[in-house]
Write a protein that binds this DNA or RNA. Structure first.
Lengths: 211, 211
DNA sequence: AACGTAAGTGAGTAATCACTCATTAACATT
DNA sequence: AATGTTAATGAGTGATTACTCACTTACGTT
């Protein structure tokens, strides 16, 4: 029951609501974390970036780790909603989905890289990531893939392999550009999507050739 | 000029050579680093694992970061040699290369994950990784790919996209199994290679279908 | 204006960090 | 046995860490 009424907003520096402060801290934490890593960031630094005292952080989050979880949790589920179900064609779905994910990753590449990096060391992050992304995969991708198989459009490759391949291609896109700058310089998302999709759907080999 | 002669080895606990100690420390550091991350590991912990005093570490490595570099540098170049050039067929090359890399990654998956995780935060790691792996890509993969294109076997997709797709699939293999356990349970390397290669070379779509 | 309350503060704390250095131990050489 | 040399030690150091708490501030209510 947060009975905080927005009355008039005078010139003098008003105290922010608890929720506003919380958001300030979360935003600052996200920036510092993605830049320096969880263990490389200090609560003092985050407080400075958020414009609050260090003690304020611990009024909103009991521990530093709780802050980490609070930063990542909403981000992990983000983007699920943005995908509509208007597609009829499995191939069209994969094209849209890949482009959608590439855009999402390009916009949040520091975040994505951070999540996967920290997933190595923190069980909580790994579990949240696993649940969130696997949920996307199973709920969204698998039905379309199986639909395609039933229609005879897709090969009956085991779904885990499809998922792994697809995610590898897509997720690595963001990591790649960071770790290996210089390669793929002027690649637009459109081009990247088309080229990846060409390989993913039709393969590297020209159709007439034999293995 | 290390004039240390291996004479007789009496029962009493002998002092190890500098090189032996160095290797002990490197091995322990690798284990601790991959488990807890660079910033999550302490030199005290590494010393304990290596069975040496903390000061000994700094007799062999000036700083903790120097230890990190010393741990990773040899690992990054590892595996290049193991690949012979007996292949004649570009397709066969990709099959062998993928299987080879998958095995390498499966055996060193903690290391691989650690390298890419720390590459987010340390320029030195990123540069070493970039140079090492990009070198492999350009020196080994690109010639075979271009050979395939000239033979009319491969499509003239821009090489960066091919490389990115290939690396994404392969590298993500290890990360995937760690972050998303439960999926792809009993997948052997043989199966994984075959399924990935099927998608990479021939695509998900059955040949008769149209986009 | 006086009071109560929720939110914010920052100096303080105990623990921990990477790193140092005077000392000791283990060898080879004489 | 005496001496020199190289390697190893671990208590010590100053800096830094996540986190605490007694106190202040800003606001709503009366």
């Amino acid at each position: 029951m947060k009975s905080k009424q927005e009355t008039e907003q005078p010139e003098i520096r008003r105290k922010k609501t608890a929720e506003e402060r919380r958001q300030d801290i979360l935003e600052a934490a996200l920036n510092i974390f993605t830049e320096k890593g969880y263990n490389g960031s200090t609560t003092a630094e985050i407080a400075r970036a958020a414009g609050v005292a260090e003690g304020t952080i611990f009024r909103h989050f009991a521990t530093k780790k709780e802050l980490l979880i609070a930063v990542l949790s909403p981000k992990i589920l983000e983007g699920i909603i943005s995908l509509d179900k208007k597609h009829k064609d499995p191939v069209e779905f994969f094209r849209c989905f890949m482009k959608n994910r590439l855009e999402l990753i390009k916009e949040n590449d520091a975040l994505v890289r951070f999540m996967f990096a920290e997933a190595q060391y923190h069980d909580e992050v790994r579990e949240a990531l696993s649940k969130g992304i696997l949920g996307q995969g199973i709920n969204i991708v698998q039905p379309w893939f199986e639909k395609g198989v039933k229609q005879g459009v897709f090969k009956p490759v085991p779904f885990p392999s499809v998922m792994r391949t697809f995610m590898g291609m897509v997720l690595f896109y963001g990591v790649f550009n960071h770790v290996f700058p210089g390669l793929s310089p002027k690649n637009t998302i459109e081009e990247a999507t088309d080229q990846m999709l060409e390989i993913f759907l039709h393969g590297l080999i020209v159709k007439e050739a034999k293995t």
